[in-house]
């Protein structure tokens, strides 16, 4: 069965330290000024019952990826055998159709002109390691694994807690789930 890699991020445990961001930049040598992941702080409700939530965000490696559908050259593609969305810089024209199509604003333009984005640290995953952001999280709020495997930690966490995805109404079926 094909892998459906995903992340489960515990928003209750996340302290918004930004270690995941630094780890990603270091591991993937992301050029200065550009970021594959980021942390948001969302405050909702009315005083005095305000709710604060930290979220580490990145490409959602959607099951129905609009970026891949929008790409006119096939440079944006889904890795065979999994749901990891990647970009082939040698095919990319830098037309930015995928940037327009992504509801999460997770793509950016590399200095060379092609599109950059989170790869779930595919080079690490292929060696059986965790993505860099997950491996360094000091709060252990991020878990990576195969959502298709009912015995995986990510599947177990999703069964045990209430969770949400970002902009589910966009119909992209994201693979990053947030425990709330």
């Amino acid at each position: 069965m094909a892998k459906r890699y995903g992340m489960v991020i515990d928003t209750v445990k996340c302290i918004g330290c930004g270690d995941c961001v630094i780890a990603c930049k270091t591991e993937n040598k992301v050029p200065e000024g550009l970021h594959r992941d980021w942390v948001v702080e969302e405050v909702s409700g009315e005083f005095p019952t305000l709710h604060l939530e930290f979220r580490s965000e990145r490409c959602n490696h959607c099951e129905n990826p609009p970026c891949v559908h929008a790409c006119p050259t096939g440079a944006s593609y889904v890795q065979q055998g999994s749901n990891i969305t990647l970009v082939d810089g040698g095919k990319c024209t830098g037309c930015k159709a995928c940037v327009a199509a992504c509801p999460y604003d997770a793509r950016f333009i590399m200095p060379e002109g092609f599109i950059g984005k989170c790869t779930f640290c595919l080079h690490r995953v292929e060696k059986g390691e965790q993505p860099a952001c997950v491996s360094v999280c000091p709060a252990h709020c991020m878990t990576f694994g195969d959502l298709n495997d009912p015995s995986s930690e990510v599947s177990r966490l999703l069964r045990s807690r209430k969770s949400k995805t970002l902009a589910p109404e966009a119909g992209t079926r994201p693979s990053i789930h947030y425990l709330v």
Binding site: G16, G18, V21, G33, L34, H35, W38, V39, V40, E41, E42, F54, K96, V99, D105, R107, F108, I109
Partner: peptide, 11 residues
């Protein structure tokens, strides 16, 4: 609010 430094060019 994004609390880490995300300032991707044109994004």
């Amino acid at each position: 609010a994004i609390i880490t430094n995300k300032a991707n060019h044109l994004i």
